[in-house]
């Protein structure tokens, strides 16, 4: 066990806050400011109890609470940080998830859960924002993105077949989509309009993301356009990861926005 993790945790015996709460809040703060990074192993309950000179029960309670709040997970008897934040550029630039996973320092991989051609009725297309499909035919893919073999985000895409002729035969399913589109069709996504909200995970999606049913997640729907303003993709994702974004809203930007509105 790295001794440095132990050194980071302390308790204040004069405080009116109980010890397990203090341990939990200490750990949480270290995880949120990324002193304890994704996948860091935590000390065993015995080690930490001995270090802080408290009962093992105190540490057990703190760890259980952190599992409940989904900051840590237990694997093969070891508690490990499971909290993860996608980098800011994933949010405010149109970055491929694949690249965002690499930016986290993880090895990305993609599992294709489903790929098929679907026909959508005009009402559904309108809701998604597609206005010009001649036949309502779309290539549908549903894929799970992993970082170091841990599921991070599940993403469905609807790609109009008249924009991507032949994709249903040639796209295997596990390739990064943006690169594939550029290599085969010669254009890129230029703009993405996103709506995100917090939702509870259904049993099915929770199972795929290795989370409990009802775990809070971020649902994001994306309408993606090319440089000519043509809508080329509708995507919907669920992720338990946080988005660390908008690192800066400067005073100047805020004043400008306030004036405009």
């Amino acid at each position: 066990m790295q001794s440095n993790v132990l050194e980071l945790i302390n308790i204040d015996r004069r405080s009116t806050v109980n010890y397990s709460q203090q341990v939990k809040e200490n750990m949480k703060a270290l995880i949120l400011d990324r002193t304890l990074y994704y996948k860091t192993d935590l000390p065993t309950q015995d080690e930490l109890a001995a270090h802080l000179n408290v009962s093992v029960k105190v540490i057990n309670e703190a760890y259980e609470q952190l599992v409940q709040e989904r900051y840590i997970k237990i694997k093969n008897g070891t508690y490990r940080v499971s909290y993860i934040e996608l980098t800011n550029y994933f949010f405010d630039r149109n970055t491929a998830i694949y690249d965002a996973v690499i930016a986290l320092g993880l090895t990305p991989s993609i599992e294709c859960l489903s790929k098929k051609v679907v026909t959508l009725d005009s009402e559904t297309m309108e809701r998604m924002g597609f206005s010009d499909s001649p036949d309502g035919k779309f290539f549908y893919i549903n894929r799970l993105y992993y970082g170091d073999n841990q599921p991070i985000i599940i993403l469905e895409n609807y790609l109009p077949l008249h924009v991507f002729p032949g994709i249903e035969f040639n796209f295997k399913g596990h390739e990064p989509l943006n690169d594939y589109i550029f290599a085969h069709y010669g254009f890129k996504a230029a703009l993405s309009k996103r709506v995100t909200k917090a939702v509870n995970l259904s049993q099915k999606i929770a199972g795929l993301l290795n989370e409990r049913t009802n775990a809070a997640s971020i649902q994001s729907t994306n309408k993606i356009y090319d440089a000519k303003g043509r809508m080329i993709d509708y995507g919907r994702s669920f992720s338990i990861s946080s988005y660390y974004f908008q690192a800066l809203i400067t005073k100047a930007e805020r004043d400008k926005y306030t004036k405009e509105n």
């Binding site: 149109n94 230029a190 709506v195 917090a198 939702v199």
Partner: peptide
């Protein structure tokens, strides 16, 4: 703390 069911955040992002 925003109740998820009643809050949507919208953002437009540009490719680099």
């Amino acid at each position: 703390y925003y109740p998820g069911e009643f809050t949507e955040f919208e953002v437009t992002v540009h490719a680099i």
